[in-house]
């Protein structure tokens, strides 16, 4: 496994493509997070809210995105993590997670992080400040 500290500005960590979003993913996240807003799990409730169908919890995608950094837990930790929710994630969407190193200011590595859907549209965009131990 390569380390984050070897990364040059402009380079990215290995991107992750998630399995297509399934209802059970969102049911599991509802249970684990305690966010039972039914627009994430029940079709009729999503439709009543004016949505074409259920949508993923924004925090589900944000939670997934952070796993790009988990392998490096012995090198440092996520000190700051900020996200703007830019688009909705629907059932069967295939989400790709990316992180690109933008700036090094010892001991901090600043990454731009992105979650894209199968059409290449940004659904989440933000920053991670990874602080080395």
């Amino acid at each position: 496994m390569s380390t984050l500290t070897q990364l040059q500005v402009g380079e990215s960590v290995k991107e992750i493509q998630l399995e297509a979003v399934s209802r059970i993913d969102l049911i599991k996240y509802a249970g684990a997070s305690g966010d039972f807003n039914p627009i994430h799990t029940i079709d009729e409730e999503a439709k009543k809210a004016g949505l074409p169908g259920i949508i993923a919890h924004g925090m589900w995608t944000m939670g997934n995105l952070a796993k790009l950094f988990t392998p490096y837990f012995e090198e440092g930790f996520v000190k700051d993590y900020s996200i703007r929710f830019k688009g909705m994630v629907f059932l069967n969407d295939v989400i790709t997670l990316k992180a690109t190193l933008k700036e090094v200011e010892e001991p901090n590595l600043r990454f731009q992080v992105l979650a894209l859907n199968q059409n290449g549209n940004e659904v989440l965009k933000g920053e991670v400040l990874f602080t080395k131990f």
């Binding site: 996520v78 900020s82 703007r84």
Partner: peptide, 15 residues
Amino acid sequence: KGLIHGEQTFHYERP
């Protein structure tokens, strides 16, 4: 109902 989660941040001193 009808709320949209627009942005979210976390700041940590340690895990």
